[in-house]
Design a protein around this nucleic acid. Structure first.
Lengths: 199, 199
DNA sequence: CAAGTTACAGATTTTGACATCTGTTACCAG
DNA sequence: CTGGTAACAGATGTCAAAATCTGTAACTTG
């Protein structure tokens, strides 16, 4: 007796996300997911080769939702690159703060993948680095930011702001002064990039 | 029947450090320490109010050994402040890498205290920040580093180099490129402080 | 054969009885 | 009264048996 809905990958992802949110990443099982969908767990394995792959797909989808919002900021030609750099770094922090607050279970799931060196985590970092590189390249193009190599400079800026986007510092993002600290780091970095710091 | 040696705090600390190294922070018990000293565990409690306090005392002593080596670099007036800043940050990284390599158990113990927001961890950070402030103040005094407030600037530099000294990044310190990354961040920060970057 | 099922082996988690540890108290020797 | 012990209650940790989960395979149905 086949299920009413033919069970596509998307339905599985939605159910998994729900289970993950309810049970947390440690206790969520694919048997739970199957139960929620009213099928046997073997049916889930027809669509995803492993539990790991399922978790990665859910997390990737979740991360991609935010990536696009940040991309809008990174590509906003109306804002001068130096200011855009600052705004983008603040936005990255804000997005991650919001994710922790609103979706702690999914955030924890992402943390597990990152610790396991999953491609989901490295791809996410690559996405962010790409956006950062684009901002710096814009600044190089209009002469407002001095750099020989936008990608290398993006890497340096990313390293120097690790405290404000690296998972390992998530606990510190609750500190009320965190935004001001990021602002101060931005100012020093922009100074180093020979950009006007008080625009 | 009293022990041959009257059991002073120092002997307890030495024994605890030994047990900690042998068993690791999770498995080291105060009963173990007492056994190593040939006394009952209640005797240890006469000198330290809790296991937590004992662990803190050991870790503090251990951290203080390295603090002094770094202080020498921070206070070396023969090296110009900009270069000294770079050398000091590299030394902090090198000291922590060495600690992980040579004393992984004690390093783990320190990590546990830091996670528990023990004063040992915050004091250690305060020590380092003090040394960094001294270097920057030297630079401000001789005009080689521009800053309004050496302490605030030290805080910013510390935040911007979190990846290279914050416990949470310990795993990344194994990466062979880590030294070069720190060097690049240093260069950008020194640029921001209007210091000559290739001295 | 596409989309699902049941059945199963091996790995992982949970459980619950048991052991050990932490921290305290009452006590003892010089 | 200093410097220790022994005995204890409650918290924490250990370990093996039982339950559950993961992933595979052989089977069923439209």
């Amino acid at each position: 007796m086949p299920a009413r809905t033919p069970l596509d990958a998307n339905a599985i992802l939605a159910a998994t996300e729900d289970i993950l949110r309810r049970h947390g990443p440690d206790k969520a099982t694919v048997v739970d997911v199957a139960r929620a969908l009213g099928v046997s767990h073997a049916a889930v394995y027809k669509h995803f080769p492993s539990k790991q792959a399922l978790r990665e797909a859910v997390t990737r989808r979740w991360l991609d939702r935010n990536r696009d919002a940040l991309a809008v900021i990174a590509a906003d030609g109306a804002v001068p690159p130096a200011r855009r750099l600052r705004a983008w770094l603040h936005a990255v922090l804000a997005v991650k703060q919001a994710k922790i607050r609103e979706d702690p279970e999914l955030f924890a799931a992402y943390g597990i993948l990152a610790a396991a060196h999953s491609s989901v985590a490295t791809d996410h970092v690559a996405d962010l680095l790409g956006q950062l590189t684009a901002i710096i390249a814009d600044g190089a193009a209009d002469g407002s930011l001095r750099t020989d190599d936008a990608q290398a400079t993006a890497h340096v800026v990313f390293n120097a702001t690790a405290k404000f986007h690296h998972l390992a510092h998530a606990a510190e993002w609750q500190d009320p002064g965190i935004g001001a600290e990021l602002d101060d780091v931005c100012s020093l970095l922009l100074e180093g990039l020979h950009a006007p710091t008080s625009p």
